[in-house]
Structure formats: structure tokens, C-alpha cells
Computed example of a mutant assay.
Amino acid sequence: MTPAPLVLLDLDGTLTDSYPGIAASARVAFTALGMPVPDDAALRRFVGPPLADSFPAFGVPGERVPEAVAAYRGYFREAGMWENSVYAGIPEQLVELRAAGVRLAVATSKPEVFAGPICERFGLAAHLEGVFGAPLDHVPSSKATVVAAALDALRPGGAVLMVGDREHDVHGARAHGVDCLGVAWGYAQPGELAAAGAVDVVADVGGLAAAVLAVLGRASGDDGAVSGSPRPAGAPTTGT
């Protein structure tokens, strides 16, 4: 039997609309530093990259980045992580993929200590074999290191695909020879995913499972059919 394929799913902007809590946490941080608060459109750029990269991109001096991160995390732990929602239709797409024999796990740049509880609270964990995220901010990390941790823990024997909404997902996956399928409902700038090298970009949530199966089918040469046994729903997660 052909080994089941593994799909690594980004969290923010792919499975959940986390912008409200991220933006609120960033506003708290800029206010605490006495710096101008970016507008809503600019704050959307906070979704995806590590905070240690985002704050300098908005003019926070390097020596004040730890202060900004601490203020951000203070609000995020208290309230911001729950100012979040699963995109309509995502659970059904995950069920469809599992029924097709696809293994699923989350691989996110969000710290794992937050990603795991978010997946539990919003009912995503039951569909997943694992939730893999970054360490807290004093430990260097990138999307590539998160993908590496997921691959090391899950040891896939079949095809592997990343699904995400930002260029960081594409680059992090490509560092391990893994293709990335982009999603258009997240936080990417126009053309960002294609320019980064995503194999395709899915226009809406309702097309996610079909697009994933099509890419996996091309990789295996079987026109979208996926073989292998799905993991039972509700199986315990790994890495949280």
C-alpha cells in the first residue's frame, strides 16, 4: 500500500482568522513603547512572520524589540489569542481530507505554547496528528525549523505538502524540498504567493480539499487519488 501523504497546515490566515487578536496585541505593544500605532492595513503584515522580524520592520529599534515582544505577549496571553475564529468551511475540508487518507498536522510560526491550546479550543485538534510551532521568542526560529520539527516527529513515508497563506510558508517548506499550496483568503499581499513559488493558489475555502488532492495526485502520478489509511479522528496530538 502506498504510504499516506502528509499535509502540513499553517494556522494563522489558513485555518483561522487571527488578525483581530494579533492586531490588538500589536497596538498594545506600540502604545507601551510610546511609538505611533500602525493602521489596520499595515498591521495585517504582523500575521505570519515571527515577532522578532515584524517589530523591526515597523521601525522598532533592535534594543527595544524584547520590550515590544513582552508587551505584545502580555496582552496576547490574556485575551488576544482567543480573539480568533476558524474560517467557515475549514472543518469540513479537513474531514474530507482525512476521509481521503491524508495525514494532517499544523506547522505554524506562532509559538507552540499558544498554537496547541488554540487548536484545542477551536475544535481543530481532533483532525490533526500534531501541532508544531515555534519556541518562545528568545530562541531563534523560522518556518523552516518548524517544518523540520514536524517532519522529524511524524516521519512521513509518502508525499508531503505545505498549505499556507504567506511567502514564509513557501520558503520554509522549500527548504526541505516540500512544495507549498497557497491560499488566497489569508494575509498575503497580491502576487506574494506566486512570486515565492507556490505550486498553486486556492481561491476559496470550499476548494481546499480538492486542490490539495490534485497537487498530491500530480506528485504521485495518479490524477488526484490518494491511498493509505487515515488516522482515526480524535487521535492524540503530538508536539503540544
Rank of each mutant, 00 (worst) to 15 (best):
M1K: 09
A4W: 12
L6C: 05
L9K: 15
L9T: 13
L9Q: 03
D10V: 06
D10L: 07
D10Q: 09
L11K: 11
D12F: 00
G13M: 11
L15M: 09
L15V: 08
L15N: 03
L15H: 10
D17N: 08
D17E: 15
Y19D: 05
Y19H: 12
P20G: 13
G21E: 13
G21A: 01
A23Q: 10
A23E: 15
A29M: 06
T31D: 09
L33V: 06
M35L: 15
M35T: 10
P36E: 14
V37C: 06
R45D: 09
R45V: 01
F46P: 04
G48E: 13
G48D: 12
P49W: 12
V60D: 04
G62L: 15
E63Y: 05
E67F: 07
Y72Q: 11
R77N: 03
E78L: 10
G80T: 10
M81W: 11
W82M: 07
Y87E: 14
A88S: 13
I90C: 01
I90D: 09
P91W: 05
E92P: 03
E96L: 10
E96D: 14
R98W: 08
R98G: 11
A99H: 02
A100Y: 04
G101C: 15
R103W: 04
A105G: 03
V106K: 03
A107G: 11
K110P: 07
K110A: 13
P111E: 15
E112R: 12
G116Q: 14
C119N: 08
C119R: 12
E120I: 07
E120D: 15
G123T: 11
A125V: 14
A126N: 12
A126F: 06
E129A: 00
G130F: 10
A134Q: 04
S142M: 02
T145H: 06
T145W: 12
V146E: 08
V147T: 04
A149Y: 04
A149R: 11
A149H: 07
L151E: 09
L151C: 07
D152I: 00
R155P: 00
R155L: 02
G157M: 14
G157D: 02
G158P: 10
L161A: 05
M162G: 01
V163G: 04
D165N: 11
R166H: 09
R166E: 03
R174F: 09
H176N: 07
G177S: 07
G177R: 01
G177H: 13
C180F: 05
L181G: 01
V183S: 08
W185F: 04
W185R: 03
G186F: 03
P190F: 13
A195C: 02
A196D: 01
A196T: 08
A198H: 06
V199Q: 04
D200S: 10
V202P: 00
A203I: 09
A211T: 11
A211L: 05
A211D: 02
A211P: 00
V212S: 02
L213D: 01
G217H: 13
R218D: 14
A219K: 03
G221E: 12
A225Y: 07
S229F: 07
R231P: 06
R231Q: 03
R231F: 04
G234D: 13
T238K: 14
T238V: 15
G239F: 04
